[in-house]
Amino acid sequence: MAKKAIEVSNLTFTYPDEEAPVLKDVNFSVNHGEILGIIGPTGAGKSTLAMCVNGLVPQVINGEMEGTVRVNGEDVSESNVAKMSEQVGFVFQEPENQLSQMTIEEEIAFGMGNLGVPRDEMLIRIKDALEQVGLVGFEKRSPLALSGGQQQRLAIASVLAMRPTIMIMDEPTSMLDPKGKNEVYDVLKNLKEYGMTGIIIDHEVERIAAYCDKVLVLSEGEIRMFAPSEEVFTNVEMLHDLTLHAPQVTEFLARYNQQFGQKLKLSTTVEESIEVFESAYK
């Protein structure tokens, strides 16, 4: 197995008819089993970057690309999108755009059918995928009869059944209610148990902080921070400079320190922040 799940080196990408590149000399790598969050203002190049990882950019969405993207050691530019889909799964913002079949099991079988997975194997994988996203018992239902959160989990299950080693989700929860958002993030967390690597693009910094190992901050096509979540989200000043923000608890602790001349440890989760603040009061 290659040392890194994803390795991006000197990646620069320019869309046709654009003068400025949308990604500028991007370098980072993701270890096997890691969950990476990508944040950044609208227009930073987050989705373009994600699509470079499975080769959609530049093979389907054209443009001028320099640098290399390696997935499990393999140069993406030497592969094609169909072949990459066996390694890299992609889930988009609106699950409805990704669903096409009459029943949930057919939906999950669809992607596998395209890969030529034999029927017996399909049945096993359908069962596994439904377990992984918590939709067991829904096999015969119509995808359209599901809630938004369930539809998004189904979209994820259909991708999981193709047994990729890497899962990329581009703003998968923005259409969902709070319960649906949690459901999707819980699935993301479970990927680790299956030895998978995950990338999630989202504006929900509080959930990113709670669920991701590392965070990459992209702004105007450049990497501005790439570090463990804790480190990124406690650099509140830098985030503000980039018009971003930290989780509310971190914002609070930072402002409390500033306003009252304190030096409390900045935390990025509710539980730890409560502990930090309560113990400072005693």
């Binding site: 989780p247 509310q248 603040f277 309560e278 009061y281």
Partner: peptide
Amino acid sequence: AGLQPPQITHFANEISH
């Protein structure tokens, strides 16, 4: 209703002070 208050509300509810 399956709702969660803002993170800061959750935090403040747990601070005894």
